[in-house]
Write a protein that binds this DNA or RNA. Structure first.
Lengths: 185, 185
DNA sequence: GTCTATATGCGGATAGAC
DNA sequence: GTCTATCCGCATATAGAC
């Protein structure tokens, strides 16, 4: 892999951390450059604008979740119980490592109204998350109910992440995961 | 009531709408002044700073919910079923009128990390909301379970508001309310 | 109380050398 | 690819007249 591509990947990774923690509008190019240990102007070699940078970050996050999390739901060689168990566990690990919660939800609440160009990628992320949950739940429930419970599980987790940040206590997030884990019991 | 107090109330009300819809950091004093139809400099007669303005807005919202929503849980002359029914209905009306979702949750995700001074007022809001729910649920469940279900209901609603904004579809929010309504069935 | 005018710094973004 | 230097506008906030 060329150095240029690798540098770009690292910029995306580091800027994801900063945006997730501090928010998009409250983060200037200067802060991003310091976090990445590069000069400000170099951003405009790798990205057209700050908005395009965010868009690439969101797409990278969607890809990461698709590969590492949502994918687990479709490993048909394993039991649905085991697949659900693994999805819950990986979801827990990913969000516990991610200071600042969920960049997708943060972006919805911070800027969807003013910057609708991010809606498609964020919807794609949640569509896939809900579909992965529903795929497992169809084993036990009719499709309509499976989808409803899949949506509810996502709502519960995202609400739990919000309360986790507010109270600085992971119990809200953990309980949401636990309720998700029990959906096939 | 003096004119000054009334003007201040109107500024708070209008700026709440703008912040909730567009976010805090993406809203400048200029935009607020235009929405309120006053000159920029007048903000600094009524408020010390933009941050103090937001703090007063959050306190006003907490007061509004305490009087109009949370209070309903403690009207002991009514049945718990009726009180829950009324709380759900008023919650529905309030958030359906509120373009931009919940300013409390928005503020948590946008700025709690960088601006911890807002944590106490936002925690006060959610503490009271959860306590009001739990007060009704104690009729049927032991305290520990009542609190857990009260927290879950709030998570569910807040996650639903996020998905409602993302998909521009109130069904996620409505279903969360419906699940809350059924907690005493 | 409300206004006009302004200070000062930071925002995103670009030009052009190396 | 990476750098230095810089443009321009908007941000928050203040001074002081009326």
């Amino acid at each position: 892999m060329s150095k240029s591509i690798e540098v770009k990947r690292q910029i995306i990774s580091k800027c994801l951390e900063v945006f997730r923690k501090d928010g998009y509008y409250n983060t200037g190019i200067k802060k991003l450059a310091e976090a990445c240990e590069i000069k400000q102007s170099l951003f405009y070699y790798y990205f057209e604008s700050k908005e395009h940078l965010l868009e690439e970050i969101l797409k990278a996050v969607h890809g990461y979740f698709a590969r590492k999390v949502f994918n687990l739901a479709y490993q048909e060689e394993k039991s649905v119980h085991q697949r659900l168990e693994e999805m819950v566990e990986i979801t827990r690990e990913v969000f516990m490592r991610a200071e600042g919660g969920c960049i997708m939800a943060n972006t919805v609440l911070e800027m969807v109204q003013e910057q609708p160009q991010f809606i498609p990628v964020i919807r794609g992320f949640f569509d896939d998350w809900i579909a992965a949950n529903a795929h497992l739940l169809k084993e036990r429930y009719v499709e309509k109910v499976a989808i409803e419970k899949a949506e509810q599980a996502v709502q519960d987790v995202e609400g739990g992440i919000m309360l986790m940040r507010l109270y600085n206590d992971p119990k809200y997030f953990f309980k949401a995961l636990e309720r998700g884990r029990r959906l096939l019991d």
